[in-house]
Amino acid sequence: MIGPLLVLATAAVGLHLSQRLRSGAQTWVSPICVAAVLFALWDLACEVSETRIFPTPLDSWHAFWEIVESERLWGDVVASLFRVTWGFLLAAGIGIPLGLVVGWSTRAFWSLNPIIQGLRPISPIAWIPIAILWFGIGDGAGIFLIFLASFFPVTVGTTSAVQNISLVHQRSAMNFGVSGIDLFRRVVLPAALPQIITSLRIALGVAWLVIVAAEMVGMDSGLGYLINDARNAGSRYDLVVATMIVIGVIGIVLDLLIRRLEHFDEVRWGYVKR
């Protein structure tokens, strides 16, 4: 009982003192203090309720080291990341060019947009039986599901990015005789790029949500499978929680990585508040 209360008190004091820090240091210290508060409350709740099933933070930490040392975790992380990477790249590779065309050409928009909008609301999870039917249990089905999960945000985002290109920029291009492939390269793509990157970010977030769900139902490896396996193999909730935290941390890292794209000079203009 003393341990979590001590952490709670320390974090509260830290949070209070962090107000006096430079804003740069505050952005680190404050969230760490809040996280410490949450962990302490979690621990306290376990002790007060005298639960025998739900793990404490320390139990989860031990479980985390268990799967790190047995090298179980590494294989599942790689399996999940492998499926997300390929499904996502495939979706970007097809979705961006398709979105550029659908956004630019009225005819393409009229013929393709209704189909895209019709398929978009179907959850990728609903595709799991078909994915397994077509690709069997394994990476193929996972990649296919991630492709579906990322393809629609990327395509729809790119389409609307192109449709939002300002009239002044279009007229500038016309005025200086920019046309054909040159028009796509010099105007359409760069003008749409900030919003395309935003749609990639959304797609990657969705992909990471979907892969875990897909692996829980229809795959025999990956972080989602690890969660399911831990529960089935003797209600190892400490492993479940440890894996959940790993999933969260990887999600943050993926988002941070893709956000780096927003810092290039060619796209930074698109994120400035006006």
Binding site: N175, V187, W269
Partner: peptide
Amino acid sequence: APHPRRVFVFQEFGIFPWAS
């Protein structure tokens, strides 16, 4: 049609923000 030797200077900023 527009012609590259007759140039428009726009009211809002017509230069491309993605290019130096």
